[in-house]
Amino acid sequence: MLDVRNLSKQFGKKPALEEVSFQVGEGQIYGLLGHNGAGKSTTLGIILGMVEPDQGEAIINGVSVQKKRASALRQVGSIFESPCFYEYLSGWENLRILSNYSGPFDKKATEEIVGRVGLTERIGSKVRTYSHGMRQRLALAQALLPMPMVLLLDEPTDGLDPEGIKWFRDFILGLRRERGMTVVFNSHLLAEVEQMCDRVAILKGGKRVFEGKVASVGGDERLFDVDLDPWEEGMRFLELQGCRMIRKGRISIPPEADPAILVAALVGIRVRVSAFSPIRRSLEDLYLEITR
């Protein structure tokens, strides 16, 4: 559904993207991760035709954004950077005006989407009276009005409270389940990305440094959180047994190692073991390892 090919972009002397590529299948939810300045928003801007790449192209359902922008973007809805509305108009009037920019206004479809995002009771109120969460829901309604096949979202949960974040997660998963919609979004909330996404790409300094399935993030590595006293002496012994320190307090042990035997041996050399607990490697662990 979305094919991003060798995107490169430079602003001044600083490269924002360097040959970034990835593909998103129909009905997938795909996450773009990276620190501020990593190239996430530049990538979305190129996909939306708002930023011209120095090299490469973005293809949506077989149509190149760079060659046939209007045709490609007819299939896309988006929230890019901070959504803006006419503050002195109601939410309904904003949707009517903004919809007319790209096609005829469909009252019935708009009523359905407004109900879907939970704004029916306030859609007649002026936007200046909306909370941040309500503005995000209005932006989501606007993005869905073209009935897109692909939804692109730039930091959609930024500034939302935990209840709003959960609502957004359930909403997006529902769109995929009911309509088979393809969703691409970037976020700093790694736990949310891990719960929602099928695949992720991690950008660092404009380069793609990881791309893969979220389900495979854990890998086959056996990780343990440990608390040893003295730490240095305990770690020296564990390294002789083939263990590896990920960071202080977290180690990886070889597949053949028995944690119970390791603990007994540590106690035998008078190292106090307060914790030796198996953990599952998370997306956050992977992200921190790569970006550090």
Rank of each mutant, 00 (worst) to 15 (best):
S187R: 06
Y30I: 05
E194A: 14
I59F: 02
I60N: 07
E111L: 13
G62W: 04
K207H: 14
P15D: 06
I113A: 05
R208F: 01
V263D: 03
Q241G: 09
E111T: 12
I29C: 06
N100H: 13
G205R: 01
T182R: 06
K107N: 10
S131T: 06
L89D: 08
D161W: 10
L89K: 14
A215I: 15
R222I: 14
R122Q: 13
D158V: 03
F11E: 00
L240T: 15
V65H: 00
S71Y: 01
D229S: 14
S90C: 08
A260T: 05
I165A: 07
V273D: 04
P148W: 09
E52K: 15
M149N: 13
A72E: 03
R280A: 14
D198E: 10
I59W: 01
Y287T: 07
F22L: 12
A141C: 09
A70N: 05
G34Y: 00
E26F: 05
A201I: 03
M1F: 07
K213D: 11
E192G: 00
D106Y: 03
I290E: 12
A201C: 14
C84T: 13
S8L: 08
K108M: 07
V214R: 03
E239P: 00
W167L: 13
S78R: 04
L238Q: 00
G56R: 06
G103F: 09
Q66A: 13
N36F: 01
S64C: 11
S282Q: 07
V76F: 07
A70L: 07
F210G: 04
V209C: 13
L288Q: 04
G164P: 07
G242N: 12
E178R: 02
M134E: 10
Q136M: 13
I261H: 10
D106H: 11
E155V: 06
F185T: 06
E18F: 01
Q66S: 12
L140K: 02
G133D: 02
A191H: 06
V209L: 13
V24Q: 02
A264M: 03
T182F: 10
G45L: 07
Q136P: 00
R177A: 10
I253C: 11
L119E: 01
P254D: 11
G31K: 07
Q66G: 09
R69Y: 00
P15R: 03
C84P: 02
V63H: 02
K40P: 01
Y30S: 04
L144M: 08
V20F: 13
E284S: 05
L95E: 03
C243K: 08
F80R: 03
S277P: 00
I202C: 03
I172S: 02
T110Y: 01
K67L: 05
K248Y: 03
L152R: 02
C243M: 06
S125Y: 14
S90D: 13
E163D: 15
G62S: 07
R128Q: 15
G25S: 07
D285F: 04
L138K: 04
G77P: 06
L33M: 08
A143Y: 08
V271C: 10
P146W: 08
P83W: 11
N36K: 08
E289R: 09
A38S: 15
R176K: 13
F276L: 08
C243P: 12
E194S: 11
Y30K: 10
L2H: 04
